[in-house]
Design a protein around this nucleic acid. Structure first.
Lengths: 250, 250
DNA sequence: ACTAGCGTCATACGCGCGTTTGACGCACGT
DNA sequence: ACGTGCGTCAAACGCGCGTATGACGCTAGT
């Protein structure tokens, strides 16, 4: 049996994936080079192409390894809830999205910085990442979109898309940078807060944005006054900037 | 007088800035190369370095030219409101942020795709863009942070930072991609909606997230039930994945 | 008419990128 | 003992990047 050789190969694969994950988390897809990956992994530059074929394939494998389980658990949790109560409300659906993420974030097997990785993935602008998400997780997104649509019948379907985009973009934006540390640290305000309450606070933050009514006359009136005030100001300003005659000497 | 020469130089500068803006809007800072810029501008590769010194200086000049006016108008509008009513509420402050952006978005002088540019700038992850925003507009952000803090006294200052980051990140994320078209098109649902009502809807969407109370016992209970449900599921799942004895042949 | 200087131009330099290549070592099956 | 093949290695390839360098034309002042 070729014990050491086979183990060494598996070890190299793992080290490459670990290094790639670590670098991806704090540099994103752009700014992630094979030379940095292999240097951090302590392997030769050619190792990536030998074990994975090319860079993108390795990244895809890394993302699948990390994200498949998350979305699978989200989906099964949604199934379980719909089977139990058959119409989960908005806050429950948000909880279904958040709870598995937080649990995997606490699980060392899912990666030591799983939440950071999650934030990067959802907020990275590179076409490679966007395509990967689109191709792998579109049906899951569709299921949740339908669940939200049933939970929020008063929100038109077109505006619901905007609001979901809005809410999830913001969440990923918060997860992405170092803010996750601040979130966990500052929300707990010194004393350690149980995950349950922390997630409840997040739900309390996002849910009102999804549930909100479309816009009251009072809000329209406030905006209208601001528009008038701003236009008056800018007209006065432009008249000042283009004086009718030549100005006196400076 | 050296008429043609001077005009041609100014014309080249303008064409370079226009090309850079256009490319930056739909490719971001990364994926923006001087060869593409100069090709679109119809100039020589060396033109950028001749007129601006280097690439980053040109980008900085472009951003300042576009964003300085926006933030100046926001600031003066905030000043005017605070002078008038001395405690603008949350919805009003959001309106102060949105109204000048929308007005400049309608102004051809501010760039034909000003809102797209705005979204790109606020959501671009590159250190260059982030540093520029940090260095130029930190005091403006501080003024608005204080205004929000006064308008939302029940929100702890640490959580307010999170919520503002949350709300503004999401907004920039929506502005960034092609979603701004969808926003304008789908929110109006076929018939053209006045800007006033469109902005009122945006305020109606964002304001509840900032104003929301910190988390009710009912929300905590919902999350708690989901956590238990998820853990039961994952334990059953892991037991299935690591069976006690060797499986029968496949 | 001549020259100075500005704006443009083709071209080249050095660098980092992803990928490819062929040689080397070493554990293995025979 | 020997050949086979797997995993690793240094080195190189072609490419696109930002920047630097002289040469060229044309305008304008003397």
């Amino acid at each position: 049996m070729r014990t050491t050789g086979g183990n060494q190969a598996a070890e190299t694969r793992r080290r490459l994936l670990d290094a790639a994950e670590h670098l991806f988390i704090d540099r994103g897809y752009e700014g992630l080079s094979m030379r940095q990956i292999t240097a951090h992994a302590g392997t030769n530059l050619a190792a990536v192409n030998y074990h994975f074929g090319n860079k993108d394939t390795m990244l895809r494998e890394l993302l699948s390894q990390r994200l498949d389980r998350l979305n699978e658990e989200r989906l099964q949790l949604l199934d379980a809830c719909e089977a139990a109560e058959q119409l989960p409300d908005c806050e429950t659906i948000l909880g279904i999205l958040f709870v598995p993420a937080m649990q995997l974030g606490r699980d060392p097997d899912a990666g030591p910085a799983f939440l950071r990785l999650l934030g990067r993935v959802y907020s990275d602008a590179s076409p490679f990442i966007r395509d990967h998400l689109q191709q792998h997780y579109r049906p899951i997104f569709g299921r949740f979109f339908d669940a939200f649509a049933r939970a929020l019948p008063h929100v038109p379907r077109s505006e619901l898309g905007l609001r979901l985009h809005f809410a999830l973009k913001s969440l990923s934006g918060v997860l992405a940078t170092d803010d996750m540390d601040e979130l966990v640290a500052e929300l707990s305000m010194g004393q350690s807060i149980p995950d349950t309450e922390l997630l409840a606070r997040l739900v309390a933050l996002v849910s009102p944005a999804l549930t909100a009514p479309l816009g009251t006359p009072a809000q329209v009136e406030k905006i209208h006054r601001l528009q008038q005030l701003s236009q008056v100001r800018s007209m006065a300003c432009s008249r000042k900037h283009t004086p009718p005659a030549a100005p006196a000497e400076a």
